[in-house]
Amino acid sequence: MEQGTVKWFNAEKGFGFIERENGDDVFVHFSAIQGDGFKSLDEGQAVTFDVEEGQRGPQAANVQKA
Rank of each mutant, 00 (worst) to 15 (best):
Q59D: 02
Q64K: 12
G14T: 04
E53P: 12
S31W: 07
F17K: 04
N22L: 10
F9W: 15
N10P: 02
A66F: 12
Q64V: 12
Q59K: 09
D24C: 10
G4E: 01
F38Y: 11
G16H: 00
D50A: 11
D50F: 13
E2L: 14
E12N: 14
T48I: 11
Q34E: 09
A61M: 13
Q3V: 13
F15E: 02
W8Y: 08
A11G: 09
S40M: 09
V6Y: 01
Q45D: 13
G23F: 08
S40Q: 09
E12D: 11
Q34K: 13
A61I: 13
E2I: 13
K65Y: 10
F30W: 15
V28I: 07
N10H: 09
T5H: 15
N10F: 07
A32S: 10
K13M: 10
G23M: 11
G44N: 07
G16Q: 00
K65P: 12
I18M: 03
E21K: 15
V47Y: 03
E43V: 15
A60L: 02
G35Q: 10
H29I: 04
K65V: 14
T5Q: 10
I33G: 02
I33Y: 03
D24G: 12
A60G: 04
P58W: 11
R56T: 07
G37D: 06
R20D: 05
M1C: 08
Q55C: 09
S31K: 09
N62H: 10
G14D: 01
A32M: 06
A46D: 09
N10S: 13
E2W: 15
D24A: 15
A46G: 09
Q64Y: 11
A46M: 13
L41M: 05
F17L: 05
G37P: 06
F17S: 03
E2F: 15
G16V: 01
N22S: 12
A11F: 10
M1N: 12
M1D: 08
Q59H: 09
D36A: 12
H29L: 06
E53L: 13
I33A: 02
M1L: 12
L41R: 02
V6P: 00
T5F: 13
P58Q: 09
V47F: 02
G57M: 04
F49A: 00
G23K: 12
F30L: 05
Q34P: 06
Q34H: 10
G54A: 08
V63I: 05
R20A: 06
F17I: 07
V47R: 00
M1R: 13
F15D: 01
V28F: 14
N22F: 12
R20S: 07
V63W: 00
F17Q: 03
V51F: 07
D24E: 12
G23C: 07
E12R: 15
Q3L: 12
R20F: 05
F38P: 09
A66E: 09
A61S: 10
D36E: 12
F27T: 01
G16K: 00
F15H: 06
I18R: 00
Q3K: 15
E12V: 14
D24W: 11
K39L: 10
Q59I: 09
V6R: 00
F15V: 05
T48M: 11
V26R: 02
F15G: 02
F17R: 04
M1A: 14
V63A: 03
G57P: 05
F15T: 03
N62R: 09
D24V: 14
K65M: 10
I18F: 03
Q34M: 12
T48V: 11
V28A: 03
V47P: 00
E43P: 15
L41N: 02
L41T: 03
F9H: 01
A60I: 02
M1Q: 14
A60D: 01
A32Y: 04
Q59C: 07
A61Q: 10
F15N: 02
F38E: 08
A11W: 11
E52V: 15
G37K: 06
F27G: 01
G4W: 02
I18A: 01
E53N: 13
Q34W: 10
G23Y: 09
N10L: 08
A61N: 09
A60M: 01
